[in-house]
Simulated assay, not measured.
Amino acid sequence: MPRSNTLDTHTLPCCPALLSLALAGGPLESLRQLRDQHDSSAAAIAAGPAQWRAASCTPAQCQALSRPDPDAWARATTWLLEDNHHLIGWDEPDYPPLLRDSPNPPVALFVAGDPTRLWQPAIAIVGSRNPTAGGRDNARDFATALAGHGLTIASGLAAGIDAAAHRAALACSGSTYAVIGTGPDLAYPRHHRQLQAQIASQGAVVSEYPPGTVPRSGQFPARNRLLAALALGTVVIEAAERSGALITARLASEAGREIFALPGSIHNPMARGCHRLIRQGATLVTHADDILEGVANLAGELACALQTRLQTPISPVPSGQHPAVTPEDPNYKRLWDALGYDPTGMDLLIERTGLTAASLSSMLLLMELEGRVASAHGRYTRT
């Protein structure tokens, strides 16, 4: 594999070839095409410049694949050697399925924290960086309610609505992850450094940009496409008529996701973007239940993908029927037996069933959407 003599690959906790692809930059389609034409990332790099050019790699990409920048390599290697830091490649089974099937997914993801959060059913909550007090309260209340229903809260770690949603999920011990537009080692805005560290510790922080990548304006709309694709749906709390939140909503629509918008006062300029979305067909929401109904179908698709990954018999429940508890569905039976009519938290369900949190979250969501399970404040009961 062509590589600079200064690059250390001996202690790297991931495939060196995958890191080469992640550091190549440039058009993502050509890197995905190159990878898909070979059996592995290592084979793609070993194929050499002629094959790289045949996959439409640019001259700059070919140069980077041949001799990765030593400084960028050192920063990425140093970051990856830290605990709970991961590089997940396009060719790996842990790559999030909703993102894989979206327009222009990245060839790799840098993840600080728990990568399985990206598999859990999530709702993106976005909005103004300068919300009203009411908008901030709505972000908190919706994030708390949705987290109480077992959904992960996803957002972009921006000031305003994003930060309020993340903090609300953390405060109620819910699941959350942030999709950022810088390298995973940098916080933007800077005063969110502590919040970013807390999200990485209790959830996950994900970026397609290598460590050391500073904030640039074009990276944030690109970040928004990842946020939109990873989530089952996007909720816009407050947004002006020209807003990054509207970009996220448009990208969510292009990825086949549901779009929800909260109405507001006709006198509030921060509500005009939401009203525009509603006129264009977004679902008007006033309660978390409106969102649960809207994402039921896609949640079932995610559960099927999770079944394949975990090789567990998770399957959507036919409308009007109880979840299957026959020997053909042992995990559902185990979960059903672990539930009672007294509220039961996720930790106790994990202890009783021996199943993972990711598996239980998907199963509980499907059972709740079918009306067989109720949840409140992160605890579950039979109905």
Rank of each mutant, 00 (worst) to 15 (best):
Y209H: 09
N224T: 06
H149M: 12
T283Q: 15
A338Y: 07
P313W: 03
L18G: 05
S173A: 14
D71T: 01
P215D: 10
V206C: 10
R75P: 02
D162L: 03
T248K: 07
G340M: 11
C57D: 10
A42E: 12
T312C: 14
L87N: 03
A147S: 11
Q194T: 12
N268S: 15
P323W: 11
Q311K: 06
P327N: 13
R250K: 14
R129Y: 00
R190P: 02
T234R: 06
I45Q: 13
S56V: 05
E208Y: 11
P313K: 12
T176H: 00
A122N: 09
R32I: 15
V373N: 00
Q202E: 11
L31A: 09
W73N: 10
P189H: 07
N130F: 05
L87M: 06
E92D: 14
A165R: 02
L195C: 06
G340T: 13
S375C: 09
A303L: 08
A154C: 15
P68D: 06
A164S: 12
D101T: 04
G281T: 05
H166N: 12
A169N: 06
S128R: 10
L227C: 06
A124H: 02
Y209R: 04
G183D: 09
L34T: 11
I88N: 02
A252S: 03
Y177I: 02
P131K: 01
S40K: 11
A222V: 03
S30D: 01
A43L: 08
A245C: 15
R257W: 12
D329R: 14
D94N: 15
S315W: 10
T308I: 08
R352E: 01
S361I: 00
A159L: 14
L98S: 14
P106Y: 07
H287D: 11
Q280N: 11
G183S: 04
E370W: 08
L80H: 15
Y209G: 01
N138M: 14
A171S: 15
D342H: 13
A64N: 05
P330D: 13
R242E: 10
D71M: 01
Q198D: 12
N224Y: 05
G89W: 00
S30K: 05
E241H: 11
L262E: 15
R67T: 04
V126D: 02
V317G: 07
Q120K: 11
P269Y: 12
A139V: 07
A239V: 01
R136S: 13
Q37H: 07
L349N: 07
V295C: 12
I123E: 01
L31T: 08
G203T: 01
A165H: 08
A338M: 13
A76M: 03
L81I: 06
L19K: 04
L364C: 09
G25K: 01
D290T: 14
D347V: 09
P210M: 14
N104Y: 06
G127L: 01
S319A: 13
V236G: 00
Q51L: 04
A42P: 03
D290P: 14
T9I: 14
L87D: 02
P93F: 14
T132P: 09
L98Y: 02
A165M: 01
I161M: 04
D290C: 13
G48K: 13
L230P: 05
L7W: 09
R167V: 10
D342E: 12
A324W: 04
E328M: 06
P2E: 00
A255C: 07
V325F: 08
H275Q: 13
N268M: 11
F142T: 01
L369M: 13
Q120R: 14
V317M: 13
L98A: 05
